[in-house]
Design a protein around this nucleic acid. Structure first.
Lengths: 199, 199
DNA sequence: GACAATTTTTAGCGACTGCTAAATACCAGG
DNA sequence: CCTGGTATTTAGCAGTCGCTAAAAATTGTC
């Protein structure tokens, strides 16, 4: 019989429905849309349509599109962080780090978020925070691996991680466009770096 | 007294008004909007407003927004190519190449175009073509510099150019977000590479 | 000054956008 | 069964979008 309903909802970003199935479906649809058609295609109506619900629900679960983008970024970042942490327990830390940084799927999404962050300060802040954490965790993983295996690295771990991040991103993106110049030699360069860290 | 006016205009991308002052102002406004507010902010109405003309003129000079984006990219690419060619006549080819690749202004624009290319095939094609040419010209400039000065490079020129492109882009973008991890050591790495090419 | 091509504006169509108020459906605990 | 919170929908506002037809203004040419 419809009580007063929902006034004063959505003060905080996290709310009761955070673990909701629908909310998760919306986020998944957002990620897919963003990857396939770019961030400008992520609209409440399209999200609703893709998730089989009404567009209004998007505004029920997210205070604004800004909030949705930040939530999506955080979730994506958490997932990636978990993958990096798992690599800590592997015997092939360098290989896994390179695989993560050169993943073309992540690359496309990363570029979309970077473009978004150019004009959405909330997204920029989230990216900067997670980006630093992400790098530090990679750095720790690599250092621990080197120590555990008694390896004397030919290159500073900080530098190596930055090189993997930058070349991994650019190569995966350019490859998607059909570019090839310098790719072979760059991949070989990284491969040799990784080999030099073999136990 | 208004004759038949303009039927069957705009068959080709290039048309009579290509050198028009208005057309150029629209492109300049597009570049500025894209850099400051992202590609999604580049709309005919905002371009018109920024250029002091009506939105309709955008559609008079450009067959579609796709056409506008490609034209803008081509113009930007030509300008950059001219700058690289100039570097050919300098005594500091490596330094200039690094300066070009790590320019944060170009970086932001580059990311916007990469994001655009994710869902605008015409933009992707233009980027792939110019990207390869761009790299090749850098490569030729570097090789010519090395030969003229009798320098035996410690690193393959192809690889060095790819490293400058990838680290230059990522560092400039991350710096804009406030990230710093690994930046100092990476800049030092590039600087040492450049130093090793001194005559 | 007439004429024709070029440039620019006015007006508008159909579709989409973020977001909100209000109503309804659903579901668990008493 | 009833009550109250949660989830979802219906309906709509005010604004923007790309793009077009048509008219008007501007400009160059003879």
């Amino acid at each position: 019989m419809t009580r007063v309903a929902n006034t004063a909802k959505r003060q905080r970003t996290r709310q009761r429905g955070d673990s909701s199935d629908t909310r998760q479906r919306l986020l998944t649809a957002a990620e897919q849309l963003m990857r396939e058609q770019g961030y400008a295609a992520v609209t409440s109506r399209r999200l609703g349509q893709q998730s089989g619900v009404t567009a209004t629900l998007v505004h029920y679960y997210f205070a604004s599109m800004d909030d949705l983008f930040v939530s999506l970024y955080r979730q994506h970042a958490e997932t990636t962080l978990a993958r990096v942490r798992q690599a800590l327990d592997t015997q092939q830390v360098p290989q896994v780090l390179w695989a993560l940084n050169s993943d073309p799927i992540d690359g496309v999404l990363h570029v979309e978020f970077m473009a978004l962050s150019n004009h959405r300060p909330a997204v920029r802040e989230a990216m900067a925070n997670y980006g630093e954490v992400y790098r530090k965790i990679q750095h720790n993983a690599l250092k621990k691996y080197l120590k555990n295996n008694g390896i004397e690295p030919a290159m500073d771990p900080d530098l190596m991680i930055t090189l993997m991040a930058s070349t991994g991103l650019l190569l995966s993106l350019e490859q998607a466009s059909g570019m090839t110049f310098g790719h072979r030699k760059t991949r070989r360069f990284i491969a040799e770096l990784i080999d030099s860290l073999e136990a």
